[in-house]
Simulated scan of single mutants.
Amino acid sequence: MVPVSVVIITKNEAEMISRSITMLKQITDDIIVVDNDSTDQTVSITKQNGCRVYQKNWDGYGANKNKGIELARYNWILSIDADEIPDTALLISIAQLKFNDNNTVYDIPFKAYYGNKPINFGNWGRDHHIRLFNRTRVKWSEPPVHETLILPRNVSVKKLNGHLHHYSVKNASEHEAKIVHYAQLSALKYLQSGKKAGFVKLYIAPVFHFVKTYIFLLGFLDGKEGWYIAKMAMKSTWLKYHYLSKAQQAPKQKNYQNGIPVMAYEYKADIHTE
Score class of each variant (00 low, 15 high):
128 H>A: 11
62 G>R: 02
53 V>S: 14
37 D>P: 01
58 W>N: 06
42 T>N: 10
55 Q>M: 15
46 T>Q: 03
118 P>H: 10
46 T>Y: 02
54 Y>M: 09
117 K>N: 08
50 G>H: 06
95 A>V: 03
50 G>M: 06
97 L>A: 03
117 K>Q: 13
137 R>S: 07
140 W>I: 03
67 K>V: 09
86 P>I: 12
123 N>I: 07
116 N>A: 06
103 N>S: 14
113 Y>L: 06
92 I>E: 14
95 A>S: 15
70 E>D: 15
66 N>Y: 05
36 N>R: 08
36 N>M: 07
34 V>K: 05
87 D>M: 05
78 L>Y: 00
47 K>W: 00
83 D>A: 06
125 G>P: 01
44 S>V: 12
90 L>M: 09
92 I>A: 11
55 Q>G: 10
39 T>Q: 14
133 F>N: 00
138 V>D: 01
133 F>W: 04
84 E>D: 06
75 N>K: 07
111 K>N: 09
102 N>L: 11
85 I>F: 00
63 A>S: 15
69 I>M: 07
128 H>C: 04
64 N>W: 03
47 K>S: 14
94 I>P: 02
87 D>K: 05
74 Y>Q: 04
113 Y>Q: 12
46 T>E: 06
35 D>V: 07
109 P>L: 04
128 H>N: 10
138 V>N: 03
139 K>D: 14
90 L>E: 04
142 E>C: 15
72 A>N: 04
118 P>V: 12
90 L>A: 09
141 S>T: 15
110 F>H: 13
66 N>V: 13
117 K>M: 08
39 T>W: 03
